[in-house]
Design a protein around this nucleic acid. Structure first.
Length: 556
DNA sequence: GAGTTTGAAACT
DNA sequence: CAGTTTCAAACTC
C-alpha cells in the first residue's frame, strides 16, 4: 500500500497521477493535451499561448523533446508578445537527455478498480500523455485565482465550475486578469512555460511483458523539497513523474534512478526482503534514526515492514551493536546525522545536500554477504586452530574434539554454500548472518530458525545452550556439535569462543567500514558524474562496486 | 471533513 | 539574493 493512497481518494495508483495535477504548469503536457478541454479552454490571449505562438512563428527547428514539452499551443492564434517577453526572453532551458526513468504501469487489477477494463494499449496511451480525463477544479480562496497558486490560472484556463471564492479568473474580470499576467511575466518571463521538459516515452525493452515504461524528462527549474524525499506529490518532479535532476536543490532526495524507496513505491512492496535488511544496515551505518522511506510509510505498512525486518534482527539492535563495535574499536561515534557521504566523524553541513544518494543495496549484494559469511567462518575456524595449537596441555582427545568442531564449522559453511548454489539463498539466512554479526551471536534464539546454518557453528553461546538442552533441535541435528558439547575442557572452548568472537567482530567491523568507504566513494563519483558527465570516473564507481568482503579479507 | 504538512509562489 | 510569509494542494487522522 502506498503512503499517499492510504487515505486520499485522489491518491495516484502506482505512483502515477490519476488526475489533473495540482499546482503545476502542464507538467505532463503533450501534444495530446493541446486539445481544448471541455471545461477549461486554453485562451488564445493567455501568455502561454502567446509564447507558443511566438516560438512557432520564429520557425526555428526545435529539438523534438522541446516540441513535446510545448503544451497548449493554439494553432492559428498569434498575438503580440508581451513587453516582458520582448525585453527578457531568455533562452529556453536546454533539454538534456536523462537516464531512463522507469515507472510501473498499473496492473490489470488496479486498472479494473474503476470498473471498466482497459486494454493495455489504452493504459499505455493514458500513461504516455498523462492526460487527465477531467480537469481538477481549484479551491482558491485568497488569491482570486489570479496568481500562480491557482492551478487554472497557471495552466492558462478560466475557472469553470471550480470551488474557488472571489474568483477573478473569468472573462468578466479580463482586465484584471491580463494585468495579473503581465505582473507575473515581469517577475518571471518563464512563469507560464511548461515546467517539465519531456521526451517521448517508450518501453524499456520493448517487450510486451515489460510493465516498466520509461519517462524521460526533467523539471526545468527543479524542486526544492526538504521533507518529502521527493516521493510525494508535494514534489513537482514526482508529481510530473520525472526523476529529480541536477536542476533540483532537494534534500534527502529519493526520486532518482535506482532509488529503492522509489522502486518500492512503484512496485507496491519489496521485491525481496533483502532490501530491507540492506536498509537496516544502511540506517545503522549511517547512524540515522530512521529508514528514509520507512518512516514515510503509513502505520500499517510500517508494521508490516517492521515484521519483515525484525524477524531476525532489528534496526535498533543493528545500530546498537555497530555502535558497540565502533566504541570497542575506538571509531568515531555514530551520530544522528552521520552520513557515509562524510568522513565517519564528520557532521553533515548544509553544503552536503546531495541529491542522489546511492543506497547500500547498490553496493552490497547478496554475493558479498555470502563471502562475508564464508570469511567469518574461516576466520572463526582459524581462531580455533590457533588457540588449540597453543594448548599443549590438551590431550589428544580434546584436540580431536576441537578439530571436529572446526570441521563442523567449515562443513556448515560448505553446506550453506551448497544452498546458495542451489539458489536457495533467502532472506532468513541473510538476516541470520546479520543477527550474528550485529548481535554477537545472539541471533534469533527465540525462534531458533532465523540464523543461517553458516553462522550456527559460529554461535558459540548456542553450543552452551545446546549443552543444557538435550532436546535442542539444533543440537540433535548436529551430532558433531554434540561431541563438542560433551567436552570437559570447557575453558579451552571458552577461549576459542572468545577468540572467534573477537576475530569475527573485528572482520565484520572492517567489512562495515569498507562499506562506508565504498558508499562515500560511490556517492562522490555519482555526484561528479551527474554534474560533469565525466565518464572517466566510471572506473572509480566500478572500483567502488568491488567486493567489500574481498577488501576486508585482504586486510585481515 | 477538519486539521496538518508541504513546498511553490509571492513578498520583503 | 536570502529569508519570510502566503497560499493551496497533499496528506493524515
Amino acid at each position: 500500500m502506498e503512503p499517499m493512497e492510504a487515505s486520499s481518494p485522489t491518491a495516484p495508483k502506482n505512483g502515477f497521477p490519476v488526475k489533473r495535477l495540482a499546482r503545476q504548469l502542464d507538467f505532463t503536457a503533450t501534444p495530446a493535451m493541446c486539445r481544448p478541454l471541455a471545461a477549461n479552454v486554453i485562451l488564445p490571449e493567455h501568455p502561454q499561448a502567446q509564447l507558443q505562438s511566438k516560438l512557432l512563428a520564429l520557425a526555428k527547428p526545435a529539438p523534438p523533446a522541446i516540441l513535446v514539452s510545448q503544451p497548449q499551443v493554439v494553432s492559428g492564434e498569434k498575438s503580440p508578445p508581451s513587453r516582458a517577453m520582448q525585453q527578457r526572453r531568455k533562452p529556453k532551458v536546454p533539454v538534456v537527455m536523462r537516464l531512463a526513468h522507469t515507472v510501473r504501469r498499473p496492473t490489470s487489477q488496479e486498472v479494473n478498480k474503476c470498473g471498466s477494463p482497459k486494454l493495455p494499449d489504452q493504459r499505455s496511451i493514458e500513461l504516455r500523455d498523462a492526460t487527465p480525463k477531467k480537469k481538477k477544479q481549484c479551491n482558491c480562496k485568497n488569491s482570486r485565482c489570479l496568481k500562480l497558486y491557482c492551478e487554472c490560472f497557471a495552466s492558462g484556463t478560466y475557472c469553470n465550475g471550480c470551488n474557488c471564492t472571489k474568483c477573478h479568473n473569468t472573462s468578466e474580470h479580463e482586465a484584471q486578469r491580463k494585468e495579473a499576467i503581465e505582473i507575473i511575466l515581469e517577475r518571471n518571463p518563464d512563469a507560464f512555460q511548461p515546467k517539465i521538459a519531456k521526451s517521448p516515452i517508450g518501453t524499456t525493452d520493448g517487450s510486451v511483458e515489460a510493465y516498466d515504461v520509461t519517462i524521460m524528462g526533467k523539471h526545468n527549474k527543479g524542486c526544492n523539497c526538504k521533507k518529502s524525499g521527493c516521493l510525494k506529490k508535494y514534489c513537482e518532479c514526482f508529481q510530473a513523474s520525472v526523476l529529480c535532476s541536477e536542476n533540483c536543490n532537494c534534500i534527502d532526495c529519493k526520486n532518482f534512478e535506482g532509488s529503492k524507496e522509489r522502486d518500492y513505491m512503484f512496485h507496491e512492496g519489496p521485491t525481496n526482503d533483502f532490501r530491507f535488511v540492506n536498509q537496516a544496515i544502511n540506517a545503522a551505518i549511517c547512524g540515522t534514526s530512521k529508514f528514509s522511506y520507512f518512516n514515510t510509510l503509513p502505520a500499517t505498512k510500517k508494521r508490516k515492514t517492521e515484521q519483515l525486518i525484525c524477524r531476525a534482527t532489528s534496526v535498533d539492535a543493528v545500530k546498537d551493536r555497530i555502535e558497540q563495535i565502533r566504541q570497542e574499536n575506538d571509531l568515531a561515534p555514530t551520530t544522528a546525522s552521520f552520513s557515509p557521504l562524510s568522513a565517519p566523524s564528520a557532521q553533515p553541513t548544509t553544503a552536503m545536500k546531495f541529491t542522489h544518494r546511492p543506497l547500500l543495496a547498490e553496493i552490497l549484494q547478496s554475493k558479498h554477504l555470502k563471502e562475508l559469511c564464508s570469511l567469518l567462518v574461516v576466520v572463526s575456524a582459524e581462531a580455533a586452530k590457533k588457540i588449540s595449537g597453543k594448548k599443549h596441555v590438551m590431550n589428544k582427545g580434546d584436540i580431536e574434539e576441537v578439530e571436529t568442531s572446526i570441521s563442523s564449522a567449515i562443513q556448515g559453511s560448505k553446506d550453506v554454500h551448497a544452498q546458495y548454489r542451489n539458489e536457495s539463498f533467502n532472506t532468513s539466512q541473510v538476516e541470520g548472518n546479520l543477527a550474528y554479526g550485529c548481535q554477537s551471536g545472539e541471533g534469533d534464539r527465540e525462534t531458533g530458525s532465523s540464523a543461517s546454518p553458516e553462522t550456527l557453528p559460529l554461535m558459540s553461546n548456542d553450543r552452551d545452550v545446546a549443552t543444557e538442552g538435550a532436546d535442542s533441535p539444533s543440537g540433535a541435528s548436529n551430532p558433531k556439535r554434540n561431541t563438542t558439547i560433551k567436552s570437559p575442557n570447557r575453558e579451552v572452548f571458552k577461549e576459542i569462543d572468545a577468540e572467534q568472537e573477537r576475530l569475527v567482530l573485528k572482520n565484520f567491523c572492517g567489512f562495515l567500514n569498507k562499506l562506508i568507504t565504498c558508499t562515500i566513494i560511490r556517492e562522490t563519483s555519482h555526484l561528479s558524474l551527474s554534474r560533469n558527465g565525466l565518464e572517466s570516473q566510471l572506473g572509480v564507481v566500478q572500483n567502488c562496486n568491488s567486493n567489500p568482503t574481498i577488501q576486508t579479507r585482504k586486510s585481515v
